[in-house]
Nucleic acid binder design. Structure first.
Lengths: 165, 165
DNA sequence: GACACGTGAACAAGGCTCAGTTCATCGAGG
DNA sequence: CCTCGATGAACTGAGCCTTGTTCACGTGTC
């Protein structure tokens, strides 16, 4: 799907004309640009996070010729998918179908609340409950915890680079 | 920046209220979900492409305990930044500043046309022209071409998998 | 409609990201 | 305001993605 097709689908979703949908999409994309360019991380909970990542200078390779080429240090845009995006992509969670704006608010509210929300939630906590009950039972859990606390305090060369983001 | 802050900025950009901005953003995100879930690749030229990528089953590791864990085959959402997004993130290109909707259309049209568009364009083609003139001159260019043409025709195991997207 | 630019494919090697788990904090939505 | 879920940090090793270049096709904008 390309941008034009996406705008059509978006217009249907918004119940608007294509021009409005275009404006909406462009505004979103441009604002994402603005945030990332500023070096700020944009987290859209569930969907994912856009951020600027720094890349050190290195010697890369032109795969076609095998020639080495020096790549200067630079910054690249990165996106990390959020939990919800991952869940629906993997099929662990379903998205509500929204055809048009008029039906959207009503269908969204009821669909989100009743069926989709309950089914996956029932699945997720079951896993966690079992994990916790297992972890809570034996003594090694306390050991694992103790081992973890000092590890955090240890100086990590990688941590500062990430915290800059 | 989180979602609420983004919505504020978006509202300013759209010249709308926050509710409208919220609707816009949610519509965009939900439509991205819908496309990716369908297994379709969404290409927003310049910004980037969202797609679903398949992951084979593998034995992963819990880094904390070193314990191996079997990860089932699954699908994950992926984003690949487009050329424009890369260019503005690296600083090779500047984005037009858009404060509010009223000023947006006029400022966008003029800003996009006159200063920002011309400066980077002048930079880009210069690079390409030189690359082409170099390539066109020597005989090895023809060889490289000849070698390339058959390579494309050769059956590639990777190509079909990607074309499915 | 026209033009300019973006995208994808192919190549080899190196760098980057992520898998699970736990816990604390934060954010979003009702 | 409250509750629930998302996020991030830390851990190691394996798998994935990207780097440049060229060319042809497709897309988007004016």
């Amino acid at each position: 799907m390309n941008k034009a097709q996406f705008i059509e689908a978006l217009a249907a979703r918004l119940g608007s004309d294509k021009k409005t949908a275009t404006t909406s999409l462009d505004a979103v994309l441009d604002e994402i640009y603005a945030v990332v360019v500023k070096g700020e991380k944009l987290t859209l909970t569930g969907f994912g996070a856009f951020e600027k990542r720094d890349r050190a200078a290195r010697i890369a390779r032109n795969p076609a010729t095998g020639a080495s080429v020096r790549v200067k240090k630079t910054s690249v845009p990165a996106f990390r998918a959020g939990a919800e995006f991952k869940a629906i992509t993997s099929g662990a969670k379903k998205i509500a179908k929204v055809p048009a704006k008029k039906a959207a608010p009503a269908a969204k509210a009821s669909a989100a609340k009743a069926p989709a929300a309950k089914a996956p939630v029932a699945k997720a906590p079951a896993k966690r409950v079992s994990a916790r009950s297992v972890a809570a039972k034996p003594a090694p859990a306390a050991k694992a915890r103790a081992a973890k606390a000092p590890a955090k305090k240890a100086p990590v060369k990688r941590a500062p680079a990430k915290r800059a983001g």
